[in-house]
């Protein structure tokens, strides 16, 4: 077995230290080392988006990033999206618009959509569909997901 590496990073606003093997992906470390199972694995090869996290303001498929690369970075996962006293508007909009059926894709969609609306608060339907094209949902046909993101956009503008 290879030697473990000591990593310090910031996850959802907290300083986190962990030991990992150089070959371990960020997804593996989140789920298996840090017990943060909100980030999901659907393919482990960058094609489903279930493992989406934000690293220093970019969205990343965490299955494609080595955990050692997270040294000194700032990571947001689904566990860090809600405010302390209430849900994030996207989470609320997903509930109100029935934008999830089985819900396995939901953390990835919410994190990806947050990253879009944080940088482009006026994104329209076409832009939302384009941005979310890296996230697969097999249950909903995307209609209610896109509507939820559009609804959250309005709420966020008024906040």
């Amino acid at each position: 077995m290879s030697e473990k590496v000591h990593i310090e990073t910031n996850i959802n606003g907290s300083q986190v230290e962990f030991l990992c093997e150089p070959r371990q992906s960020l997804l593996e470390v989140l789920r298996d080392v840090l017990d943060m199972t909100g980030t999901k694995e659907g393919c482990n090869d960058g094609n489903c988006g279930a493992c989406t996290v934000i690293v220093d303001d970019r969205i990343i498929d965490s299955c494609l990033m080595l955990a050692v690369e997270s040294q000194g970075k700032k990571i947001t996962t689904i566990e860090g999206v809600a405010y302390t006293d209430r849900l994030h508007p996207l989470q609320q909009a997903f509930l109100e618009n029935a934008a999830l059926q089985c819900g396995i894709c939901t953390p990835g969609f919410i994190v990806a959509a947050k990253s879009l609306l944080d940088r482009e608060p006026d994104a329209d339907e076409g832009r939302i569909r384009q941005w979310l094209a890296g996230n697969l949902c097999r249950c909903t046909g995307y209609d209610k997901i896109v509507r939820a993101v559009l609804a959250a956009k309005e709420t966020m503008k008024n906040e």
Binding site: K40, I78, E79, L87, Q91, L95, A98, G103, I104, T106
Partner: peptide, 22 residues
């Protein structure tokens, strides 16, 4: 069209699926 009871856990990442147990 009420909000589903299990929705909150699913939009916050708390819901536990097959691989989320150890």
């Amino acid at each position: 069209r009420p909000i589903r009871h299990d929705g909150l856990e699913k939009v916050t990442g708390q819901a536990r699926y097959g691989a989320d147990i150890s």
